[in-house]
């Protein structure tokens, strides 16, 4: 499955989130492809779900995939608890697990 992580410039927090999402995927045997991008480019990117800091997630209301907002980007527990259920659901829908 494919994730797009989003921040204001596609350069800082979105990269941190992408690394975290891929690490969580590896831990649970899910292959996650993805890219980090800026808010302006995010809406046109094909993907199965998006992850962004909560402040940025507000700006992504009109995309047609799940947008997972993260409040504390250093809290691995929050990130995993929010992201894993979505990844598992998508993996099932796509027949990946």
């Amino acid at each position: 499955m494919r994730v797009v992580t989003v921040c204001g410039m596609g350069f800082g927090t979105s990269l941190m989130l992408l690394m975290d999402v891929q690490a969580i995927g590896r831990k649970h045997g899910l292959h996650i492809e993805g890219e980090a991008t800026d808010l302006g480019s995010a809406k046109g990117k094909p993907c199965d779900f998006m992850v962004a800091s909560s402040e940025i997630a507000h700006e992504l209301k009109d995309v047609n995939v799940d947008v997972i907002p993260i409040m504390n980007l250093l809290n691995k527990k929050e990130i995993e608890e929010k992201i894993l259920p979505v990844m598992v659901r998508i993996a099932k829908e796509k027949g990946e697990i």
């Binding site: 921040c7 410039m9 800082g12 941190m16 940025i56 504390n72």
Partner: peptide, 19 residues
């Protein structure tokens, strides 16, 4: 422009721009 999202966690801000 893009706001306070650079406050990535309680008490911590990570300001940056592009290369």
């Amino acid at each position: 422009e893009v706001g306070p999202y650079i406050v990535i966690a309680p008490m911590i801000a990570v300001p940056h721009a592009r290369p």
